[in-house]
Nucleic acid binder design. Structure first.
Lengths: 142, 142
DNA sequence: GCTTGAACCTTCAGTGGCTGTAGCTCTTAT
DNA sequence: ATAAGAGCTACAGCCACTGAAGGTTCAAGC
């Protein structure tokens, strides 16, 4: 039987985070000691490890919820798993593209700065005046 | 005199966002009509445009606060402005690098999936078993 | 002058994914 | 028996907004 602290150490998770996962229904309610402390088994450890690995790959918790549900129906096709992963990949690609255009803009701006007084600063001028150089205003920033 | 709605339209900002900026002290408290509605001048419009342009470039609000303060002392050197921008560029670069390593890992994972049953899914196996392929666990995810 | 409807007001809750704190209680080793 | 360390609950805070409820004000048209 594993304490919450042991679970945390083994998966490099904060104790509070595990309790949070329980609260939002991502981890099951574990058994308790007479005194009310949580005690976990190996299945729970595996589940937590799965969640953490998925988080390291940037999957949002809702996607992880889907993956866990699919993982519990072993006889069905994994096409849905594939779809979740591809969807996430698309989001990551989109974020990279967005950040790269920010990066280019920032470099250009910084490159023009001649380190004069603030009143002549090119950076501040750009921030004051620039007209939507960035194409897509509807995507989230990152 | 500009209403909050006009300010919002001109800067492509939500009305609530402008009130939020006021609440956190990024925008000044404007004058009001007898009935209590906000009325702005051109200086406020410029300030809001500055904030929105900076946000489009991904500057966090605290950095924007710094930039606005620096912008109000025209005779000093703009080295500090430069420093804020370079600091932000570094963060953007770091996020890109992190996302690119995620992207590579996701691609590898998806590439291995043969679309069998869930019980043999390579994606799920990776998520269950993979040992920290991603070097830096201390940086924020994005 | 009056009506109408759009725009404004305040306040509060929610987003995602945790993290930190306060003030307790429980377990375990000595 | 005691004391340290780990656990417990409940709640607040982070960032940068966004939405909604429920009410008030403004401006245009008649």
């Amino acid at each position: 039987m594993l304490t919450i602290g042991t679970m945390a150490r083994r998966t490099r998770t904060k104790v509070q985070t595990i309790r949070y996962y329980e609260q939002i229904g991502l981890m099951p309610e574990p058994g308790r000691t007479e005194g009310g402390q949580r005690r976990y088994g190996d299945a729970e450890l595996d589940r937590l490890a799965f969640i953490r690995h998925s988080r390291e790959l940037g999957f949002p918790l809702e996607a992880i919820r889907e993956l866990l549900a699919l993982s519990d129906t072993p006889e069905t096709s994994c096409a849905q798993v594939d779809a979740v992963a591809r969807r996430h990949l698309k989001e990551v690609e989109a974020r990279i593209a967005r950040l790269q255009s920010l990066e280019a803009e920032l470099r250009r701006m910084i490159g023009e700065c001649r380190n004069d007084r603030v009143s002549d600063c090119r950076i501040l001028e750009v921030l004051r005046d620039h007209e939507e150089c960035l194409s897509d205003h509807r995507t989230p920033e990152l």
